[in-house]
Computed example of a mutant assay.
Amino acid sequence: MGNSLFIVWRESVEAMLVIGILYAWLKRNDGTGAGLRALWIGIGAGIGLAALLGWGMMAAQSELAGEALEWFQTAIMFVAAALIAQMVLWMQKHGRQMKQGLERELTAAAARSGAFGIAGVAALALAREGAETVIFLYGIGMDQNGGTGLALGAGLGVLLAAVTAWALNRGLGFLNYRQFFRVSGFLLLLFAVALLVNGTERVIGMGVLPALIDPLWDTSLLVDDSSPSGALLSAFTGYRARPSLMLLVVYLGYWAIVYLTQRRLQRHA
């Protein structure tokens, strides 16, 4: 439940930030109220598109069986891991300009297509956030076999996001957007590598990748990943008490790519 709560919390806060930026621009620049009505229509459409993606993924899963289903689920885990890492790195590069970028898009869309353009910008922005959340939750569900815990975590994540967005917008001293996205971004990178490790284990189990050396070491006497605390550590960071050499290569390769990308972004900031 914990990682689904965190994912939905983080993504919902970002979605609420996007809505707040669009709403504030329209309050300043639209005196008729038509733009605000178009905004809410666009928000509803964006959520609907994300829900349609979720339905499509579940429908595809129901049509698959055996090895095909295993490949589909594993591929989604890899896609979710890549999307999480890409989203965090994108926010590190463009987060400061997100407000200006959204306002430019909204200005151009309103001038070109009026209320329809405003609804389109809102729909696309919310659909992107919602689609990411759907893929992330599906990937987590494959790791945890779904269940009520996933749904409960998602519901609590939305409620916590509303409280967080309120606190951020109130400008409370202990919390601001920069701190929030910095800390949550690091935790998301940990979730991404956990999904990557899980997907890699599946591919090794299918005989596509060699384990190389298995196990490379055994730390189960310190923290067993089948114990409650070890399982929590595993779900949040990809920890394995008895990892194979291939898992270690993938794990270190992931962090090397993240580190080098962050260094490049800092040089071009």
Rank of each mutant, 00 (worst) to 15 (best):
G33Y: 01
A34E: 00
G35E: 01
G35K: 00
L36W: 00
L36F: 00
R37H: 00
A38D: 00
A38I: 00
W40Y: 11
W40F: 09
G42W: 13
G42D: 07
G42K: 03
I43H: 04
I43F: 05
A45G: 09
A45V: 01
G46V: 07
G46W: 09
G46I: 09
I47C: 06
L49N: 03
A50Q: 08
A50I: 10
A51I: 14
L52M: 13
L53Q: 06
G54F: 10
G54N: 09
W55T: 12
W55P: 01
W55A: 13
W55L: 15
G56L: 14
M57K: 09
M57E: 06
A59N: 13
A60K: 05
Q61T: 10
S62C: 02
L64Y: 08
L64R: 14
L64P: 08
G66R: 14
G66N: 12
E67S: 15
E67Q: 12
E67P: 03
E67F: 07
A68V: 05
A68L: 09
A68I: 04
L69Y: 05
E70T: 15
E70I: 12
A75G: 10
A75L: 15
I76C: 09
M77G: 09
M77S: 09
V79M: 15
A80S: 13
A82T: 06
I84K: 11
I84F: 12
Q86C: 02
Q86K: 06
Q86S: 07
M87V: 08
V88Q: 04
M91R: 01
Q92G: 13
Q92V: 06
K93Q: 11
K93L: 08
H94W: 14
H94L: 04
H94I: 05
G95L: 09
R96T: 03
Q100R: 04
